[in-house]
């Protein structure tokens, strides 16, 4: 298969169908979270909107997410006096129903019941406060980095990515990130890809990706990203820390070498088939196992 066609096939296999189980579950959780927030913060009447890869058109099956944005009016203090208070109060509210993992500005929600303990719901809740009554820009709390607050704008972010002209390259780079267990955030990766491909929007996907990886491999220390909603005000340098840079550079290098040695399929694998017959094929795989093993559970290690 021709490389360009192969990458398109990979993208197709990574597209979630609108009536599939993943998006249905996402929708159910979205409704639950929204109800919880509206109920808990009824006095503050937050503005609730959706962002994340679904809204940006960069969703992939292997790593999809939904941002639930909960912005409070600029003159409201019922949800919290400081930005940090708001963040903590939203976290406390969510903790009643979910296992909450703290991210620098967002709260990732996971299952907390006996059946789904720790299961990722692919949802980040992002609390913030509008900067003024026009309800456009917002301040977000930030638990890491130098500044404890970020000024940002959801629509500017969404448009920056939706209209970048390189959403296919972004989706493939997100898949590459997930497949290799890289810790760079989706946001930072999106900004980086858009910046690097600014003058290469009409190049082929193979050229675009190879260019991005070459820059990562050869020029990582000179790469930087700016927040499109606040280019000079928000310091995003901790999103590209020294560890993240060296890892990106190293994996980009092995990726380029992989293409050279074995072609593009070495990077994204064979195009995965749909779910048909998956169970039967898994059973065949099981029946060909030479040395079967039975799992156990050592409840002394964190279970009681």
């Amino acid at each position: 298969m021709d490389n360009e066609k192969y990458l398109k096939e990979v993208l197709k296999s990574q597209t979630l169908s609108f009536d599939g189980p993943e998006l249905a579950a996402l929708q159910q959780h979205r409704a639950d979270v929204e109800n919880l927030l509206r109920d808990h913060f009824s006095e503050s009447s937050p503005t609730i909107r959706y962002g994340g890869s679904k809204a940006k058109g960069t969703m992939i099956r292997d790593a999809y997410d939904l941002d639930i944005i909960s912005y409070f009016p600029n003159d409201d203090t019922a949800a919290g006096v400081t930005l940090e208070d708001i963040y903590n109060n939203v976290r406390t509210a969510l903790s009643k129903e979910y296992m909450v993992e703290q991210k620098p500005s967002a709260l990732r929600i996971k299952g907390n019941s006996k059946e789904n303990l720790g299961v990722d719901f692919h949802i980040d809740v992002v609390p913030g406060r509008y900067t003024d009554a026009s309800k456009s820009d917002v301040f977000l709390y930030r638990s890491s980095g130098e500044k404890k607050r970020l000024k940002t704008n959801l629509d500017v972010h969404l448009n920056h990515i939706k209209n970048s002209g390189v959403t296919e390259a972004i989706r493939l780079m997100k898949l590459w990130r997930t497949r290799n267990g890289l810790s760079i955030t989706h946001f930072a990766l999106e900004l980086l890809v858009i910046k690097l491909l600014k003058k290469r929007q009409s190049s082929s996907l193979t050229e675009q990706l190879e260019y991005v990886w070459k820059e990562m491999r050869d020029n990582i220390d000179n790469l930087s990203i700016e927040d499109p909603a606040n280019p000079t005000g928000n310091d995003l340098s901790d999103l590209l820390s020294a560890t993240i840079r060296s890892t990106l550079s190293y994996v980009a290098g092995t990726t380029l070498k992989g293409i050279e040695d074995s072609g593009w399929e070495a990077i994204f694998g064979e195009v995965e088939e749909n779910e048909d017959n998956k169970t039967a094929r898994l059973k065949v795989a099981a029946s060909s196992v030479v040395k079967p093993t039975k799992p156990w559970l050592d409840y002394e290690k964190g279970m009681v």
Binding site: G118, D120, P295
Partner: peptide, 14 residues
């Protein structure tokens, strides 16, 4: 975050 941390799935809570 795909496999629940439950006894039945042989995953501890970590």
């Amino acid at each position: 975050g795909r496999i629940p941390r439950t006894l039945d799935r042989h995953m501890n809570e970590k």
